[in-house]
Design a protein around this nucleic acid. Structure first.
Lengths: 228, 228
DNA sequence: TCAAAAGTGTTAGTTTTACACCCATGA
DNA sequence: TCATGGGTGTAAAACTAACACTTTTGA
């Protein structure tokens, strides 16, 4: 190839987790190499010559934080000159969802530390990672308006109130419990179980539901309009 | 920078035009250099070291086809190894909309020819450009469900039927004229003019409308739910 | 028996859908 | 005067929004 081009390519992952008690969190790692040594940053790194972009993100996520993820979509490519002090570096950012209770975070060789941070309370970040997270948060906040959301974020079986809280968090306003249930049940994505939540706090124990995966993924693919 | 990485970065543009009579068309150029010499392909090319991705697409579009565009959004980044026979080349694809009647296509130095092709009738394409166009068409087909569409595609002043035909093309089914008008007028994005369409064919001449740009761009930013 | 959270229906208002006749123009 | 396409309203049905009392449990 005769082209002279001095651009390097990286990938970064914005992985969101949801805890009904805490809200929406994002996975950050603490850098062990300059630039931005010891700063918090998104997991990510250089793409190898023979791996796909998806393989690169998955690999970096696993080696830097121990998180193995099954939902990842491409978010946006950030390519402004000057976004990295080392030179011209273009980064393809990915957007992931996980249930954080399924993992023990394991900072490994490439990262000093890996932690969940509430998106309302982020530390100073390396590079333009704050911007990338902003874009990802917007994407998340739009996503649930045209596809179902929750499968990757909640436990396998969950009380309907957890799903409702997720939607309240995304909408950033209270939702009427009865109308929400009508709407969600009408979508047909929930399966009711004859089990009740083990008591964690006071009050009447809630019935548990899970997602009807076939219908959930069908709606995810086809799209829908969710308005509440 | 110590990293050894042998990946090159290109940009490609999927520019859609709309002609009420013909439907939705995409701008293609005929290649003057190998690989895929003389094949039809998307306008695009290598990113220069000191330009942003947007600058790169705009430049390539203008030099290859003479199209100067004012609506461009990033579409997706295609990075599978093997998508380009010259080596590992990652391409950031952009999505653009123009009114094709505003331009004379001018194939220049870098392209043998530049032409509009109906998206239902594409020639064989270079690289993975057919896939890229597929992704762009999906994007276009989703776009009008959550933002207004038409401003970049139609004439400044247009009969409401042109807008309706655009939506029918995107939805790929007929729309009730009266309900469509109610819906669109209710959005408040149209300004009625006291002018009538110059006769092009038979029948009663239509009133002309234009977009209320302030309101149009407000809805575009905020999003909306369009269902008809 | 009290406090906490879950379960559950009805009504008014709004939105959506389906549907057909008359009007202005050029041929 | 005919053919073509444009302009326009109403009624039934579906959906959305607002609202409060009862039940189950643990403390």
């Amino acid at each position: 190839m005769s082209i002279k081009q001095n651009i390097k390519l990286t990938v970064d992952a914005v992985v969101f987790g949801y805890k009904p008690k805490e809200g929406i969190e994002v996975l950050l790692i603490k850098r062990t190499i300059p630039p931005f040594l010891h700063s918090w940053a998104l997991p990510g790194g250089f793409v190898l010559d023979d791996e796909s972009l998806e393989e690169a993100v998955t690999r970096e996520l696993e080696t830097e934080s121990g998180v193995r993820i099954n939902y990842l979509e491409q978010l946006y490519t950030f390519g402004k000159a000057g976004r990295d002090p080392r030179g011209r570096i273009v980064s393809v950012a990915y957007f992931g969802l996980v249930n954080p209770t399924n993992f023990k975070l394991a900072a490994s060789s490439d990262a000093e530390d890996a932690e969940w941070f509430n998106i309302k309370d982020l530390p100073p970040l390396a590079f333009d990672h704050a911007t990338i997270i902003d874009v990802a948060v917007q994407r998340l906040r739009n996503k649930f308006r045209y596809e179902p959301v929750g499968f990757e974020l909640l436990d396998k079986k969950f009380p309907i109130a957890d799903l409702e809280k997720l939607y309240e968090t995304l909408l950033d306003r209270p939702i009427d419990r009865r109308n929400f249930q009508k709407k969600i049940k009408h979508l047909g994505i929930l399966i009711a179980h004859n089990e009740q939540q083990k008591q964690v706090s006071q009050g009447r124990p809630a019935k548990l539901f899970s997602f009807d995966e076939a219908r959930y993924f069908k709606l995810q693919k086809e799209g829908m309009a969710f308005e509440i």
